[in-house]
Write a protein that binds this DNA or RNA. Sequence first.
DNA 1: AATTTGACAGCGA
DNA 2: GTCGCTGCCAAAT
Length: 123
Amino acid sequence: MIEIMGVMKMSGLVFSVFYSIVQRIPAGKVATYGQIARLAGMPRSARIVGYALASCPPESNIPCHRVVDRLGRTKPAFDMYSPGTQRAMLKAEGVVFRSGGTVDMALCQWNPEEPVSFQDSCP
DNA sequence: AATTTGACAGCGA
DNA sequence: GTCGCTGCCAAAT
């Protein structure tokens, strides 16, 4: 959040919201643009999320590689600096890929409702 | 100030 | 499953 300050200054403050959300994506999980937009309270601004991430400030600790489209495809043409890198990073984090090279969303889509809680039997 | 563009998503055919 | 069209809103020109 601190590193974001500089970014939010140079970009719209809407961006900072997206960035902070993306930062909450745990390793081994991925989120979609629409999902992030939804969490930000702008369900129809999926494109803006992508546009925000396009700035992808290298200074900040934004795991932009954990953001894919709704089909689990790693869309960015440059695919994080070089083709295949994003998939490799996600794999290294434990993200499961399907035969088509897409992320298995059913298994690896981040569920913001369930943070990282260990205790599940706590009614 | 107006138009085009873009790391998307949803719906219908 | 694919393909095309529409909605969306900030940035760039």
